[in-house]
Design a binder for these strands. Structure first.
Lengths: 328, 328
DNA sequence: ATGAAAGCGCTAACAA
DNA sequence: TTGTTAGCGCTTTCAT
């Protein structure tokens, strides 16, 4: 692999001149510039990023810390973050935590300033004392504990309220919720929105209709739904805290011959691509994922260099109404 | 951030000794070791990976080049590759190509030996002359053109044959195929398996029952299925070259009130998690993705240092029979 | 406008 | 066993 020195020797100039050309600096004598460019071409020179970054004191990477890529929401988000990072010449390093405290801690621990310039976090279990980051960071979605770190995401309370209001507008009165979780900040907020919408419509809050979920996978949604259907008075609607839970819930309903939406209306959260093609298709809260990714990366880019500084960005969402609440 | 020198000064030893301790080399006098370890602890020293790798001539990264993370198969695979890479102290850099030739070319171009130690590729459009890689690489799945690069994947012909044989064993005789593609190597092989299974059962090969798909998204499967249902003699079964196409096909069938599996049996390929929870659940070829990820990473690890060398690894697969072919 | 040389933090010869 | 030192490839003063 050709180095700057090789190119310099071939062009008959100093490394400085070559470096100037490569980086588009200052004025290089046209004659030298031409010679250098020819040498660059001839050697197929490619800068050694490691060396450059060592010198510049930056790494050229940002970390994206998330539970798992096999969860569609995070996979879609990761794709968008990679695209957004590219615009700032950043490469993205993905770390999976599997939503465990130890996984999240070890991901954070590996985030030395030597490895990444900044980090995007989707924590689920971290505690306040864990947030001693050595690089600028931004949290996606809310977190249970209040930490002095920037945040990008939608208004979870408002979004959940919109989802439940929609169910109420359909005339449903026994509306269940799946996905309560003691640790997760977003779960608490979504529950809050759920309760607010019920209160607003003078519907009673029935604790037995709120089912917790330790994980937010399809299997958890199915299990929760089965429990709800076993109730003496089963719900006529259910608000699931993510689409995966909703997909699982619909599956469980189908297995019990409960019809969606006539017997049971279902709303999800995340608007996964999968939900557009399920049968029935799933009504869901659709956060603007592209906006989340772009704003998070931009925010980080601004923060690198200018020090920490907390900033909260609210991104838009919409309610996508589909067959799981309104038959076609 | 503390450097080796800082630690050395604090411990009253040379950087070499500290380096030795950090890297677990040779014998360090117990007394010194203790002092160094205390200093390490006190300073919170973390090695600068960039500098270390610059010196060692490696980068600590491998690239994973794939079409897009929003495709569940690649998202699941990426998660497994990240996990496997961790065992070799590799970080994974994901590059999305969106399946285009230009996207794949620019991804390869950015793969200087300075950036990554090796690469895992899932190419779809690359041509033979593009494979002038400067680092060890392995291709996941087959590729249309024959290149001297290692390969890890299942036997696509055998897998497709198994899928179609299953449909034949159900008594289906007009079996369609969705996903033919002029460029993709895997598409050609899956088509080959499809034809072989038909021939084996003395079923005619009907060209109009083979529908191409430019992309392998759900929408493409739906469009293809609609075309098939418009045929004068529609199929009684369909083999889709991936699960996404199959999900789209089932959706299109449902919209036309065609019942799965009674009117139409459907088989997919990839065994996405999504397919277990769809209604009806989807019969699918299940490649052992964890094995693919692990073998690919291991192979690369062996190849780094020992030079190129081509090696083909065949990983196992199975057929998961579900409701889309056998009603419960 | 260009060259010489220092140095980013680390590892590895080579000495001691 | 430990210290000294060169150098990985690059950028950047500081001269010229």
């Amino acid at each position: 692999m050709a180095t700057l020195k090789d190119v310099a020797r071939l062009a008959g100039v100093s490394v400085k001149t070559v470096s100037n050309v490569v980086n588009g600096y200052s004025f290089v004598k046209p004659d030298n510039r031409r010679r250098v460019e020819e040498a660059l071409e001839a050697t197929g020179y490619r800068p050694n990023l490691g060396a450059r970054n060592l010198r510049r004191g930056r790494t050229g990477f940002i970390a994206l810390v998330l539970p798992e890529l096999s969860i569609p929401y995070f996979a879609e988000l990761a794709g968008l973050v990679i695209a957004a990072a590219q615009e700032h010449e950043w490469n993205v390093l993905i770390e999976q935590t599997f939503g465990t405290l130890s996984g999240e801690r070890s991901a954070l621990a590996s985030l030395g300033p030597h490895l990444v310039d900044a980090a995007i976090l989707s924590p689920e279990a971290l505690e306040v004392e864990d947030f001693q980051l050595s690089v600028p960071a931004v949290i996606l979605g809310e977190h249970a504990v209040d930490v002095p770190i920037s945040r990008v995401g939608i208004d979870n309370v408002a979004a959940s309220k919109a989802a439940v209001r929609h169910l109420i507008s359909l005339g449903r009165t026994r509306i269940a919720a799946i996905g309560a979780h003691p640790q997760r900040g977003t779960a608490a907020l979504r529950l809050e929105g759920y309760r607010a919408a019920l209160a607003e419509a003078d519907l009673p809050f029935v604790p037995s209709l709120v089912v917790p979920a330790l994980n937010y996978h399809r299997a958890d949604g199915a299990a929760a739904m089965k429990a709800l259907l076993d109730l003496r008075e089963p719900p006529d609607a259910v608000f699931c805290f993510n689409d995966l839970l909703a997909i699982g819930a619909m599956r469980a309903a189908a297995e019990r011959f409960v019809r969606v939406p006539s017997d049971l209306a279902v709303v999800g959260f995340d608007n996964n691509e999968e939900s557009v093609y399920s049968s029935p298709s799933l009504t869901s809260i659709a956060p603007d994922k592209a906006a989340i990714a772009r704003r998070a990366v931009d925010l980080l880019h601004r923060q690198v260099g200018s020090g920490p500084g907390r900033e909260d960005v609210e991104t838009p969402f919409s309610l996508q109404v589909r067959e799981s609440t309104v038959a076609r």
